[in-house]
Nucleic acid binder design. Structure first.
Lengths: 152, 152
DNA sequence: TTGACTTTGACTAAGTTTGACCAATGCGGT
DNA sequence: ACCGCATTGGTCAAACTTAGTCAAAGTCAA
């Protein structure tokens, strides 16, 4: 198993255990416990706990420093689809697209089959006929079209 | 026996053994084991494990990377999706795509929201960045990927 | 002989791990 | 207050580990 997956799993587990869905950790401590360099923790935080994936991370340095990871709640009221459509620019890579859809699924905003359809449409597998340079543009465009279709 | 057939047989065998109809492999490892260049694996995947043939391929690069091949085939008779995937060729115009999806919806094989998503993904609206000559190919590819993802 | 299919390898892209160096915070001592 | 330093976390780029792409060259049957 990948080291970064272990770290992610550990943090997720911390979040489960704490009743409030929030994990607070000390970078150096956790690194030592899991046998990795401290900066690996940062890597995991940016690659697996990004806002795109529905998390916010706060931290403080110095004595008594900490890192806190929280699962973000959606603003009720505004359509989350609209929010994403506005946030996505004119280019979107496969990993980000996947993160966005998986988050929508996790939040139960879309059904599993809707998520599967969108993941399939956004994966590079479908873009054989499209030049590599244009794939991310196409992906952004497709995501926006699909989400917009869900608003009405 | 052709090299590519050996590779295909090997992957098929992995899938049998696994029980869940899923094979996970490491490209370089497999290539070494079978004495071929790594890119030959990709050739086999595209030529023998396409959606038409009832497979979904996922992969990941980097440390701990993998290629996963999943069988979704249930028989084209059993799955209306598979039937369409086989019938659609390598090119599909917007009107035909729309007709196919609307028929699936009419037959209540897919939900209204699934249909909406697919219609959005197959409409020309999303293909601004794709040359006109390639749109129909992309559309065919997208439809096949999406429907294949819905099987099982 | 031609055209579809196969094989190969050089080049590219993505994801992970590590470590050297940087920045912020708080606490004591003056 | 101020300074200095211990204690934390942050950044960044190099090295590494995989997989993907593309086009040239080879094979083989119609």
């Amino acid at each position: 198993m990948r080291l970064s997956d272990e770290i992610a799993a550990y943090i997720l587990h911390m979040m489960e255990s704490a009743g409030d869905g929030e994990a607070e950790l000390k970078r150096n401590e956790l690194a030592e416990e899991l046998g990795c360099v401290p900066s690996q923790i940062n890597y995991v935080l940016t690659s697996r706990f990004s806002p795109e994936q529905g998390y916010i991370v706060e931290s403080r340095r110095g004595g008594g420093g900490y890192i806190r990871v929280r699962r973000v709640k959606l603003d009720s009221g505004v359509s989350p689809f609209m929010h994403i459509v506005n946030a996505v620019g004119y280019s979107l890579n496969a990993a980000s697209a996947q993160a966005i859809i998986e988050n929508l699924l996790y939040q139960q905003i879309v059904s599993p089959s809707s998520a599967r359809i969108m993941l399939a449409a956004l994966s590079d597998q479908a873009y054989r006929d499209v030049s590599v340079e244009q794939r991310d543009k196409l992906r952004a465009s497709l995501l926006k079209q699909m989400l917009t279709a869900l608003i009405t």
